[in-house]
Design a protein around this nucleic acid. Structure first.
Lengths: 191, 191
DNA sequence: AGTTGCACTGCAACTAGTTGCATAGGTAGC
DNA sequence: GCTACCTATGCAACTAGTTGCAGTGCAACT
């Protein structure tokens, strides 16, 4: 399990409330680990009970109070310990891939439409990541430590989205042989 | 949820026992959906209760009996129906990516070692997929229907493994700046 | 004035998947 | 003869994650 530890990493970067954590899982760290706010609240409760995090209630102006969580020494120790442990190999899961494989037992045209929709989603994510990279890491060659690691993970997300988008293009070209050639895509070349 | 439907696709291709299905999830369809044998048995029971599959007990010579499952008409209808439905967007999950991001809160050297181990795993998977492609689909341009769809999914797995392996190379190069340049890898060029 | 949306927290009930164990005969190597 | 692994199925207990709901109060749009 790693949601606990993904949260530890996120809190190590910045103390936050459950709500903020859940939002952050929509981007940056959420590239490779996601969670809904319910799951985050549940796990934060467990982590507090385990003494990995400490809470401070912060009153806000014109907004509900929030509970800001920060790492304790025990939490930092747990994080360092977990990082030293071997990681489970990734397991890819794609419902759409299963549908592509089974396309001939259903409506191949509907599958092609769905592939196109996903292609668009991934192309948008790719653009968002690239824009983020340009903005946050304008000069990658100088990066060291924490910032370097963040950039490397962002590069991983970019590589993944690019390869998904390319693959969907290939699938579309094969499933719709009438429409020749992929659509023009200016962001296809590596920067 | 899609394990039910991944099993339907698998059974549509070939009637099988739970044990055989679990094995098949180790390769081919398992590229994008995996399951342990316990999960497969559990779900098969549910599917039988729902009338999607029918069982035949097959006695074997010198081996335990097996229960071979095959699709019913209701199962085929369910499969066609599911394929027509929109698919949830993929959510990548990588424990290792979280560790890379948090490397500076632990032991960056251990993280680099772990990245190398995963690089090897993915490179092996890539080689296995490529060998499988060469063996099973020697002439992709002629493929139609079911075989074409199988090949497309295999291509997806290949693209994914290639991009992971490449990314891990980049990460290693950045985390171990002393060792310059990635190791030679003959399978890096697109075939 | 009314609706929608955001910030913020959380419970309850559910579904999906994992881990550990049990059972049982066959085959293969030492 | 012993150990170890393969085929084959399955239960029980657990962990992880999802879905649906509930409540508060402010801001912005219509």
């Amino acid at each position: 399990m790693a949601l606990e530890h993904a949260i530890l990493v996120s809190l190590a970067e910045k103390a936050s409330s459950g709500y903020e954590l859940a939002r952050r899982f929509d981007k940056s760290i959420g590239q490779f680990w996601t969670a809904t706010h319910q799951q985050v609240y549940k796990v934060l409760g467990r982590m507090e009970a385990a003494g990995w995090v400490a809470v401070t209630v912060v009153e806000q102006d014109g907004r509900p109070d929030k509970k800001v969580y920060d790492l304790t020494d025990a939490g930092r120790a747990e994080l360092a310990d977990w990082i030293a442990q071997p990681a489970a190999p990734e397991v890819a899961r794609s419902e759409l891939a299963v549908k592509i494989r089974g396309a001939s037992y259903g409506d191949p045209v509907a599958v092609a439409d769905e592939v196109e929709r996903h292609r668009t989603l991934h192309a948008e994510r790719l653009d968002a990541y690239l824009a983020n990279e340009k903005h946050e890491f304008p000069d990658p060659s100088r990066l060291r430590g924490r910032r370097l690691h963040q950039w490397l993970v962002l590069r991983g997300g970019i590589a993944l989205e690019r390869s998904m988008t390319d693959w969907y293009d290939d699938v579309l070209a094969a499933l719709r042989p009438s429409k020749r050639g992929p659509k023009p895509r200016p962001d296809k070349a590596k920067p």
